[in-house]
Design a protein around this nucleic acid. Structure first.
Length: 187
DNA sequence: AGGAAGATCTACT
DNA sequence: GTAGATCTTCCTA
């Protein structure tokens, strides 16, 4: 079952937590699947680490889109995968930081040529393994006809939180969520 | 033209 | 484990 649009139309911290354990699916010749094991929540104008913080610009305009829209951008030579949350006109979203490969592992290995454990254990790694680039910007992940969708998964046994990774200036609250003990969570 | 950005890889102490 | 080079766009000057 594909998560409905209204799943995303909530506070990003809630969405980031509840999407853990769900399945990221990219439809290809043989579909690529990965369980989401690590996410971060990003707010818009009030969040110094957010891409939307400095106002609407060409590269981040997708953050102002509808809930359930993909927002992809490049940093340090890596594509990072975000899903927009809340409603149109309110920039916020979640960053998918790591997934656990389930299907299409051979295809992923062809692209990355590394051990399974290094295939998707980081935001830039998983986009490479899945072959995701900015051409996928704006895809609706709740639409069954989309190339990329998110399916409902099992509720993870243990969820932990921490501060976000790599950001220069973080908010005081914990906005990173991950499945405790999963080997694909990044360090 | 220059620099910065939600990172990653490699090579070391 | 940490340190440094390098990764690719897009913004600012």
């Amino acid at each position: 079952m594909i998560l409905p649009k209204k799943f995303y139309a909530r506070d990003p911290a809630i969405v980031a937590k509840e999407i853990l354990g769900c399945i990221l699916v990219k439809k290809e010749h043989s579909p690529l699947k990965g369980k989401i094991v690590e996410t971060e929540a990003y707010y818009g104008l009030s969040d110094p680490a957010s891409r939307a913080f400095k106002g609407k610009m060409n590269h981040n305009k997708w953050m102002w889109g509808e809930a359930g829209t993909l927002f992809i951008y490049m940093v340090h030579g890596n594509w990072l995968l975000n899903i927009i949350t809340e409603r149109k006109g309110t920039p916020s979203g979640i960053l998918i930081r790591a997934v656990e490969p389930i299907d299409g592992i051979e295809e992923m290995k062809k692209r990355r040529n590394v051990e399974i454990k290094n295939l998707t254990s980081g935001p830039g790694k998983l986009t490479k393994s899945f072959g995701i680039t900015k051409q996928h910007n704006g895809i609706k992940v709740y639409d069954p006809s989309s190339e990329i969708v998110v399916e409902k998964g099992e509720k993870p046994s243990k969820i932990k939180t921490s501060r976000r990774i790599g950001v220069k200036e973080d908010l005081p609250q914990h906005l990173r969520f991950y499945i405790d003990g999963n080997p694909f969570v990044s360090k």
